[in-house]
Computed example of a mutant assay.
Amino acid sequence: MDTPVHVEQQGGVQVITLNRPEVRNAINTATAVAIAEALDQLDDRNDLVAGVITGTGGTFCTGMDLKAFLAGERPSVDGRGFAGITEKSSAKPLIAAVEGYAVAGGFEIVLACDLIVADETAVFGLPEVKRGLLAGGGGLLRLPRRVPHQLAVEWSLTGDYFSAAVAHDARLLNRLVPEGQALNEALALAKSIAKNGPLALRATKKIISEARDWNRDEEFTRMREIYEPVRSSEDAKEGARAFKEKRAPVWQGR
């Protein structure tokens, strides 16, 4: 793997691997562009239902490549943000498989994913305040939605790192696994998701992602706008037929 991001497909799952171990998978412009292209591919291909993002060399990602930044690079992509993901992730379910450090912008990449699997070596944190900066890649927006408010405030203001065990206790993680097993567990979770109807999965993610901004008077109307096309789809009919015939459904994505 001699590219900054390696992309492969496994059983309906797109695996996106950050591949700059010499800089602990820090993000430069080429890496951000490659991540964005991988997410575009995930969204565009009907045979791909879910995605996993991980890193090589025992580290997830340590954030922005400071040498590249000082050389004038801006490791973001129009429309998708820092690392090609923090402002707009995939429309499909995306899982972070974390081992080692996922800090600063690396943690913000994790928070842009829907689900998080980490091994016992994982370390998280938003240390930007220690350098007079702030976590501008969505960490300050997403972290308070994922953990209790007082923990989000403490971690953001101190900039201190915290372990996978602490993250698991805070209900930030979906799975905490032994060292070296994060990717395998994330793939198993992704493949379990990928067995389900692709239209239903995208609509489910869309509703969960957007509903926090809906007021009570409109929420069921907004939900029905997303739900009804799925309910009347060929996949919905196939799901009912497969249940009746006691077989696995064959999804068409329409």
Score class of each variant (00 low, 15 high):
residue 161 Y to Q: 12
residue 95 I to S: 06
residue 1 M to D: 10
residue 221 T to C: 00
residue 165 A to T: 13
residue 236 A to I: 03
residue 90 S to C: 06
residue 170 A to V: 06
residue 16 I to Y: 03
residue 153 V to A: 01
residue 254 R to H: 13
residue 57 G to H: 05
residue 89 S to R: 02
residue 177 V to R: 04
residue 25 N to L: 08
residue 140 L to I: 14
residue 5 V to T: 04
residue 121 T to G: 08
residue 134 L to I: 12
residue 165 A to G: 12
residue 71 A to H: 11
residue 26 A to V: 08
residue 207 I to K: 04
residue 102 A to I: 09
residue 5 V to H: 02
residue 193 I to Q: 01
residue 123 V to Y: 05
residue 196 N to T: 12
residue 68 A to C: 02
residue 228 E to T: 13
residue 53 I to G: 01
residue 84 G to Q: 06
residue 223 M to H: 10
residue 235 D to I: 11
residue 249 P to S: 05
residue 239 G to S: 11
residue 7 V to R: 11
residue 199 L to P: 01
residue 124 F to A: 02
residue 11 G to S: 13
residue 154 E to A: 11
residue 241 R to P: 00
residue 188 A to W: 02
residue 14 Q to V: 10
residue 84 G to L: 09
residue 54 T to N: 04
residue 193 I to V: 15
residue 253 G to N: 12
residue 237 K to L: 13
residue 235 D to T: 08
residue 186 A to M: 11
residue 27 I to G: 01
residue 116 I to V: 15
residue 228 E to K: 13
residue 182 A to K: 03
residue 220 F to N: 09
residue 212 R to V: 10
residue 174 N to K: 14
residue 125 G to N: 08
residue 13 V to A: 03
residue 165 A to S: 14
residue 132 G to H: 09
residue 143 L to A: 07
residue 93 P to R: 02
residue 164 A to F: 07
residue 134 L to N: 08
residue 55 G to Q: 06
residue 170 A to N: 04
residue 218 E to A: 05
residue 45 R to T: 06
residue 81 G to P: 06
residue 81 G to K: 04
residue 198 P to K: 05
residue 219 E to V: 15
residue 38 A to Y: 08
residue 225 E to L: 10
residue 135 A to V: 02
residue 110 V to E: 05
residue 18 L to H: 07
residue 87 E to S: 12
residue 231 R to P: 01
residue 18 L to R: 05
residue 203 A to S: 01
residue 135 A to P: 11
residue 54 T to K: 04
residue 115 L to F: 14
residue 213 D to I: 00
residue 194 A to N: 05
residue 208 I to A: 13
residue 37 E to T: 12
residue 241 R to M: 10
residue 86 T to F: 02
residue 115 L to Q: 09
residue 40 D to Q: 13
residue 243 F to N: 00
residue 227 Y to L: 15
residue 49 V to M: 02
residue 197 G to A: 14
residue 185 E to M: 15
residue 207 I to L: 07
residue 23 V to A: 02
residue 47 D to N: 09
residue 67 K to Q: 11
residue 209 S to F: 11
residue 176 L to K: 01
residue 124 F to Y: 07
residue 46 N to M: 08
residue 34 A to C: 10
residue 17 T to Q: 11
residue 187 L to I: 14
residue 193 I to A: 05
residue 207 I to H: 04
residue 44 D to K: 13
residue 53 I to P: 02
residue 134 L to Q: 11
residue 208 I to T: 11
residue 209 S to R: 15
residue 226 I to M: 07
residue 147 V to C: 06
residue 129 V to T: 03
residue 82 F to Y: 09
residue 242 A to M: 07
residue 241 R to V: 08
residue 211 A to Q: 12
residue 128 E to T: 00
residue 92 K to S: 01
residue 117 V to A: 00
residue 20 R to Q: 15
residue 98 V to N: 03
residue 174 N to Q: 14
residue 194 A to V: 06
residue 235 D to Q: 07
residue 249 P to A: 03
